Simulated scan of single mutants.
Amino acid sequence: MSIIDHIELPVADAEVSRRFYEAALEPLGLSLVITIDPARTAHGGARLGFGRKGYPSLWLHEEAGSSLPVHVAFSAGDRKAVDAFHNKALAHGGSDNGAPGVRERYHPTYYAAYVFDPDGNNIEAVCQTE
């Protein structure tokens, strides 16, 4: 059982973030599983749920105002998925925050890539095996 059930991030523009996360998370086996209309939300902004097997583990909620950036690391099944995450994220509005590679400061098989999403959040994909 996972220690985290879900994570929710505020975003400035739900459509921009949807395109970014759909592309960046696809290599990791995550997809958009639910969209909640702004009229049905407490803040009046769209809510998007991404996950695996129909369960939304990552929620994005569109909300005006400032927020501090966060760091989220997604598990990748292999190093090729980390590479694909990085490439797709950059092609869909992300900016580089660390190209794919081994981060020996964590441990010898920690293979990760980092990008900033459209709202400046530090998003990572990591494979911790060879």
Rank of each mutant, 00 (worst) to 15 (best):
D5I: 02
I7T: 13
L9A: 05
V11K: 10
V11F: 06
V11A: 13
E15Y: 01
E15C: 00
V16F: 00
S17F: 01
S17R: 04
R18D: 04
R18I: 02
F20S: 04
Y21K: 02
Y21Q: 02
E22W: 02
A24M: 07
A24E: 11
L28R: 08
L30A: 08
T35F: 03
D37G: 03
D37T: 00
R40L: 15
G44L: 06
G44I: 06
A46Y: 01
A46V: 09
R47C: 15
L48G: 08
R52H: 14
G54P: 09
P56C: 03
S57L: 02
H61L: 15
E62G: 06
G65L: 07
S66M: 10
L68W: 07
V72P: 05
V72L: 01
V72R: 05
F74T: 04
F74R: 05
S75V: 10
D78W: 03
R79E: 00
K80N: 13
V82M: 09
D83N: 14
A84V: 00
F85H: 06
H86A: 14
N87S: 15
N87A: 15
K88P: 00
K88Q: 12
G94K: 12
S95H: 08
D96A: 13
N97M: 04
N97K: 14
N97V: 04
N97T: 04
G98K: 10
A99D: 12
A99K: 04
G101Q: 06
V102F: 14
V102W: 01
R103T: 01
E104T: 02
E104M: 03
R105D: 09
R105T: 04
H107S: 04
T109K: 13
Y110M: 05
Y110H: 06
Y111K: 08
A113E: 01
A113G: 05
A113V: 06
A113K: 04
V115S: 11
F116K: 14
D117K: 03
P118R: 02
D119M: 02
G120D: 09
N122W: 10
I123T: 09
I123A: 03
E124M: 10
V126K: 02
C127A: 07
Q128F: 04
Q128N: 15
T129Q: 13
E130P: 07
